[in-house]
Amino acid sequence: MQEIFVSNLVLSALLFTIGILGVMWKRNAISLFMSVELMLNAANLAFVSFAYQMGLLSGGILVLFIMTVAAAEAGVGLAIFISMFRAKRHIRVDEHDMLHG
């Protein structure tokens, strides 16, 4: 089933690219962060595919750690969004921000 491995690497690249495009195109903070989550998922897919192809059991552990990091990041990130929402009443990423550049 080596086809699965190679196509999975390509799928991982594709999901990662869609994530990058999302970060570039989206204006809403939460959509932006969802695109980042998509990129992390793509990275997880790459890990698992490599583990599958090479027979590395430690791949599963690495994925587990990365999921933990993603969860921690999501917790803090969403708290930051809430705090920004309270301060500004919106979470758009516009050109008319106070900080620009």
Partner: peptide, 11 residues
């Protein structure tokens, strides 16, 4: 300003 900076830094 600070929360916006935190947001940009975070994303």
């Amino acid at each position: 300003r600070a929360s916006e900076a935190a947001f940009k830094y975070f994303i």
